[in-house]
Computed example of a mutant assay.
Amino acid sequence: MRPEDRQAADWREAAAYAPLLAADRSILAWEWLRRDPGYRAAADRALGQETQAAQDSRTDAGEWGLHAFEPAEIAAPAARPVWRSGFHPYVLEADALPTGDARNAFELARVAGMSTIVVESGQEHLLVSDGLRAVRLDLLSGSVRRGPVRLHYRLAGLASAERPLLTLRRLLALWRAGRFSAQLHPVEARAARFVLMLRAHDALAAGATQREIAAVLLSGEAGEARWRVRAPTVRSQVQRLVRSARFMAAGGYLALLGGEDPLAGLGGVPEAIPAVDKTNR
C-alpha cells in the first residue's frame, strides 16, 4: 500500500530533512527530481491515466532517468525510484537462470519487503531498498519472480566494472546479513551540505529572501540590522548557497548518481550546520 501523499517539508524545520542525512546519493537525487515542476507535471499526467496507458508511459519516464514514474508527492524514505543505468552507473546487470543449487539460489521472497520491480520490454529492473540505501539490478534475461534462480552477473572492463562490482558486494552482504552493510553503505560525507542546499531550494520556492535563508540556515547575525555590512562572510555564504541550490535544481543533481561532485567548478557551498540547528528562532 502506498503512503499518503506528502506535502513539501517546511524548510525551517531541520527534523523534516533529518532522514536524508543517512540517505545514499540515489535517494538524494530523487529528492531533487521530485521537486522539478516538469517532472511533477509529467508524473501527474502519466499516473492519472488508466493502468495500461500508465504502463505505456514508462518510455516518457526514461526522459527523467527512471524506468517508471514515481509519484512526486512521495518523499524519502517512502519513495522507491528505479533509476536507469544510463543515469545511475551503480546498476549490476545479470541473467536469471533456473537452478537446483539452494546454496547459490536467489529468492525474491527473501527481500520481498524491500523489493520493487519494473518490467519494461520484457526485462525486469529490480530495486532493493529500505528507503535510504539501495541496490539496483537489471535482469537482461530470465525472471526473479518465478522462483529461485541462479544469478549470472555481467561485469566487463576495468574502470567500468568498479561501480557494478560495488553493487555486487553490497548485494552479497545484504543477502548474508539480511540488512544493508554499514561498511559498504557509508553515510554520505557531504550529506549535510546537500541537505542544506535542498532546504535553500525549498526556501526559495516558498518565497523566502536571502536574509531569511541566512538567518535560519547559517547565522543569527543575518537577523540583525545592516547584516550585509556587519556579516559579510554570512552574506557571501548565503549567495553561494542560493547559487548552488539553483544549479542543483537545474539538473546538477544528476551528478549525484555517478558519485561525482555536482558542484565542481561552481565555487562550492558553505560548510553545513549540524542536523540539530537553530531553526526555530
Results as ranks from 00 to 15, higher is better:
N104Q: 14
F87C: 09
E93C: 10
S115K: 07
V82R: 06
A78W: 14
G65Q: 12
E50W: 05
T51A: 15
S121K: 13
S115E: 09
T51Y: 14
D44N: 00
S115I: 02
I74R: 08
H67V: 01
A105R: 08
P81Y: 11
Q52W: 15
A42M: 05
L108F: 06
P71R: 13
R40K: 03
G122E: 10
A61Q: 12
A42G: 04
A42I: 03
G100F: 08
H88D: 14
E70A: 10
D95P: 05
F69E: 01
A53W: 02
A54Q: 15
E70L: 03
D44C: 00
G48A: 07
T59Q: 05
Q123A: 12
D60F: 00
A96F: 10
L66V: 03
A54V: 10
W64F: 15
L108T: 05
V82H: 03
R80T: 12
S115G: 05
F106D: 05
E70M: 09
P81E: 07
I117V: 14
E107K: 11
R58H: 02
P81N: 09
A43T: 01
L108I: 08
Q49K: 13
A102F: 07
E70D: 00
A54E: 15
R40M: 04
L92V: 09
A43R: 00
F106A: 10
D56A: 15
E120C: 06
I74L: 15
T116W: 06
D44S: 02
I117F: 05
A54M: 15
E50Y: 03
G65K: 11
P71S: 13
T59R: 04
P71Q: 11
A79Y: 00
T59S: 04
D60L: 00
